[in-house]
Design a protein around this nucleic acid. Structure first.
Length: 652
RNA sequence: GCCGACGUGGCUCAAAUGGCAGAGCAGCUGACUUGUAAUCAGCAGGUUAUCGGUUCAAGUCCGAUCGUCGGCUCCA
């Protein structure tokens, strides 16, 4: 039989040769583990092609499917080890995930020591070189088998499979698991792995069902790759905004103030102010009008918007809602209804549309206590929020304008290649979560999809991620650990204009319902700051730096001149400080570098006599002597253009 | 909210089985007056997150609360 590999090369094997040996031969030829194969575009286990003269491409660890099969096998090895050490543990599910795998067990939670023990047992299993065999059972027998094994979760899984499903099992020695595969041919190939952490997870992701004990791990074919991955994780930790942002004194949290309520320190506040001024100016250029509306409102407002019905759990409610005499307020979780009432203050003509409102808006959301995280998930935050009230004909053009603004913001911050686009749709199986009916939803979603395709946005579609009033385009960032968060959102709202009885008068003098676009420019400032900290590891573009220049006098004798230099720069709007401590220059340089200041200006006798400065930058190191005017024009240009220069010198 | 880990000067970490809370860096003071990554000396800094319990004795053991982290659920 002939086998064509992905690279086009053809291998020929004797008909009587077992596929296992063929697979081994191919693996060796490739120098890595061949795991499963693609036949006619489908992933199949290598053993299923026995004696078939087919063209196939071998999946290797370099392919996503191959890695998945590899890590999935690692998760089975984990489960086998757990069953050996904890026979009473019940198996739930154990898939491969990006960069690793996990397995959920109904068992006592696992400590780090437990994980080490399990890891040791896994090593044994790998060493035992256990063959992995695949077989299927009819439904009734499959259920009976898992019942006998005492695996209620597996029984439930089988029962939920479609009637005509092929029920496949994988057996490796004393361990058998319900599994669609594919898998490796033997446990031996799992060479480099590590159990990373344990945590809790609800069975089937349902908080009403039992809490299971989950073990996370990662696996590679080579130790070097595993080590590289672990180094990467440690590097990520260094950039983690939650650590670096505190170290750099950008923000802090205090026990008695509360969870999700970070204090922005002077440097962090300055960065946010820089961002805010930039965004507000940019929005003004794009025809936005600023509003400034209250941070709270009576319950009645949220009843109209139906946040009271759909989002009450997420709001901070003031007053006793059970006491009829008590006036009940809530801190605002969004700005929408406030800006709607700005719109409603006068009767609008189609000539007034599009009407673009922007507000730098502080919001309050009562997140669950386990949810808060650094600056990315907080209970109070400030967002560059805006609402556009538009005619149906203007939807596409205005949506495009919002996307253009978002792209401009991302590009300026250097984040345009770090985001993904998610088209967030409603969940038709959970209608009570949303306003409006199926027809409205499908119609609006189709319209939005068309717009997105027309604008050439490369997006994924996610069901059940919409706002309760309409579908969204979410622009997602990943943090250093790969976890996704929404940075920017543009939402199409067909429902709230109706609830707030908003209208405009069209050409024929008739009342018409407008569409509303909800959108952010950079999104929430706290979260944006977090993303920037991680993106730049604290080495921000100069225009964003809370300290752009530090003047370093060589000795006390040059303090007067240093102050003169500082004042000249400061008068031009440069964020400049001066280090007047009686320390050596080398020491001051070291500190300025650790503080991630882009420019250091050294002044001593030579500079004072010549009326110059000596510049050291993170871009070029020692740039030598230059006039203050020259330095000023260079740095002002860099700041004005918001340039992102490559940092060559002061990376660490 | 749920599961788990953790909480010792500003930071990084010590303090065997319960037995005098300690070091480096940072800080402050003084001396040195410094030329591109760390000058020297001295000083100060703590109700061991908080509250309660066990004990002759608690950083250490137990309970509660608060907070941080890793996940789950949630996320306008």
């Amino acid at each position: 039989m002939k086998i064509t590999l992905k690279d086009g090369s053809v291998k020929e094997y004797q008909q009587e040769m077992s596929v296992l040996d063929i697979a081994k031969d191919i693996s060796e030829g490739l120098g890595r583990a061949a795991t499963a194969a693609v036949v006619d575009g489908k992933v199949v286990d290598l053993r299923t092609i026995i004696n078939k003269d087919v063209e196939l491409s071998i999946l290797t660890f370099n392919d996503a499917e191959g890695r998945k099969a590899f890590r999935h096998t690692a998760s089975h090895v984990l489960a086998q080890a757990v069953k050996r050490l904890y026979p009473n543990a019940k198996l739930a599910i154990g898939p491969a995930i990006e960069e690793g795998f996990y397995y959920d067990f109904d068992a006592e939670s696992f400590s780090r020591e437990d994980l080490d023990k399990i890891e040791a047992e896994m090593k044994k299993i790998v060493k035992e070189d256990i063959k992995i065999e695949n077989y299927t059972l009819p439904r009734a027998e499959a259920i009976k088998f898992m019942e006998e094994q005492g695996e209620p979760y597996k029984v439930e899984l089988i029962q939920d499979l479609p009637e005509d499903a092929v029920i496949s099992f994988y057996k490796q020695g004393d361990f058998t698991d319900l599994c669609a595969g594919p898998h490796l041919l033997s446990t031996k190939t799992i060479k480099a792995f590590k159990l990373l952490s344990s945590s809790g997870a609800y069975w089937r992701g349902d908080s009403k069902r039992p809490m299971l004990a989950r073990i996370y791990g990662t696996a590679y074919t080579k130790n070097a790759d595993l080590e590289e991955h672990i180094v990467k994780l440690e590097d990520a930790k260094k950039r983690d905004h939650n650590k670096l942002g505190r170290e750099m004194e950008l923000f802090a949290t205090v026990d008695v103030i509360g969870q999700g309520l970070p204090l922005m320190m002077p440097k962090g506040a300055m960065m946010i102010q820089t961002l805010q001024r930039w965004i507000e100016d940019e929005e003004e250029k794009r025809g936005y009008m600023r509003t400034k509306t209250p941070l709270m409102a009576k319950k009645d407002l949220y009843v109209i918007s139906d946040h009271w019905g759909h989002y009450k759990e997420g709001m901070f409610v003031l007053g006793d809602e059970n006491d009829e005499k008590s006036e009940v307020f809530a801190l605002r979780p969004m700005t929408c209804p406030f800006q709607y009432f700005v719109y409603k203050q006068s009767q609008k003509s189609y000539r007034d549309l599009p009407c673009r409102y922007g507000e730098t808006s502080t919001l309050f959301r009562n997140e669950d206590s386990g949810e808060m995280h650094g600056l990315t998930r907080v209970r109070q935050f400030t967002i560059s929020e805006g609402h556009l009230i538009v005619t149906p004909e203007q939807v596409e053009e205005e949506f495009k304008g919002c996307l253009d603004l978002a792209m401009y913001c991302l590009k300026t911050l250097g984040l345009e290649n770090d985001v993904t686009y998610q088209f967030s749709k409603w969940d038709p199986n959970n209608k009570q979560k949303y306003l409006g009916d199926s027809e409205q939803w499908e119609k609006t979603q189709d319209r939005m999809r068309e717009i997105l395709i027309h604008l050439g946005v490369n997006f994924t579609e996610e069901e059940g991620e919409a706002a309760f009033y309409g579908p969204k385009l979410d622009i997602q960032t990943k943090n250093v650990y790969g976890k996704e968060d929404t940075m920017i959102t543009i939402q199409l709202d067909f429902a709230l204009a109706d609830r707030f009885d908003m209208f405009y008068i069209d050409k024929n003098g008739e009342k018409k319902r407008p569409f509303i676009i909800h959108r952010t420019s950079v999104g929430c400032y706290e979260r944006t700051l977090a993303t920037l900290i991680e993106k730049y590891a604290g080495l921000f573009p100069t225009w964003l730096c809370p300290e752009q220049v530090r003047v370093l006098p060589i000795s006390e004798k040059y303090h007067d001149y240093a102050n003169e230099v500082r004042n000249t720069l400061r008068n031009k709007g440069i964020k400049v400080t001066i280090d007047e401590r009686a320390e050596k220059t080398g020491y001051k340089i070291r500190e300025a570098r650790l503080d991630k200041v882009p420019y250091m200006v050294v002044v001593g006798q030579k500079e004072e006599e010549e009326g110059t400065i000596s510049v050291r930058s993170r871009y070029n190191g020692d740039e030598g002597s230059k006039s203050i005017e020259q330095f000023l024009s260079e740095i002002l240009e860099e700041i004005a253009t918001k340039e992102i220069k490559e940092i060559k010198v002061d990376k660490e």
